[in-house]
């Protein structure tokens, strides 16, 4: 049986990306949902940019930014921090690449929470933070789950960005999608099939879960 480490590495990357993005995505989505300014549309466009930006462009700029040949990358390297061709590197790339998949559903959910939910909670003497934790977030659990699952799925299938900044290093940056590619390069079709079938199964399960969630949501409403 082929080595399972690429699959585990993909899972680790996808889970970490989803968690970190949930933590940074929530405050950003909340800020965007209440922000009223003409500049908002620019920031929103910036947030959605990774959806349409070719992964190679993201990978290229990240590589340039973090390359030890350039000032920023060199400064980091002097502190012993190496971003290209490391797990931290593909994690940073995934955070950028999957950012909109987390922020967009969260922002929409914040916007859909009726203002009176907040108001009623305030009149009952709850603070803003308490209201957020106890009233608002539980009411948007579908969006949180959707964001999490979409981010997870998007990261599992990530290829171009990781190829550019990751360099296909076993146990470090060789995720499942890269393993398929390099097995194909080595004409090892059985290993490529093995990883592909696992990814296919995971994808089917994810789509199924998203649809199940949406059905639940409709039933709730």
């Amino acid at each position: 049986m082929p080595d399972l480490s690429p699959i585990l590495l993909s899972l680790k990357l996808a889970l970490l990306t989803s968690f970190v993005l949930l933590v940074i995505g929530l405050p950003i989505a909340y800020a965007l949902s209440i922000w009223k300014s003409k500049a908002k549309i620019f920031v929103e466009s910036l947030v959605s940019l990774p959806i349409i930006l070719p992964p190679t462009v993201i990978g290229f700029y990240l590589l340039i930014l973090f390359s030890p040949e350039n000032l920023f990358g060199e400064t980091l390297a002097n502190f012993g921090i190496h971003i290209p061709f490391t797990f931290s590197g593909i994690l940073i790339a995934s955070l950028v690449y999957s950012f909109p998949f987390m922020v967009q559903p969260l922002q929409k959910a914040f916007e859909q929470i009726p203002q009176h939910y907040w108001n009623i909670s305030y009149t009952l003497g709850k603070s803003k933070f308490e209201t957020l934790i106890k009233v608002v977030l539980p009411n948007m659990k579908h969006a949180i789950l959707t964001g999490f699952i979409l981010t997870f799925a998007h990261t599992m299938g990530e290829f171009g960005v990781i190829l550019m900044i990751g360099g296909n290093i076993p146990g470090e940056t060789k995720v499942a999608s890269l393993a398929i590619y390099s097995d194909l390069e080595a004409l090892d079709y059985s290993a490529a099939h093995f990883y592909s079938i696992i990814l296919l199964t995971i994808s089917i399960l994810i789509i199924f879960m998203v649809n199940l969630l949406n059905k639940d949501k409709k039933a709730d409403a």
Binding site: L63, S67, P68, E69, H82, F85
Partner: peptide, 8 residues
């Protein structure tokens, strides 16, 4: 290119 960019 990868080596120039610090690939290990």
């Amino acid at each position: 290119t990868q080596i120039i960019n610090g690939a290990p």
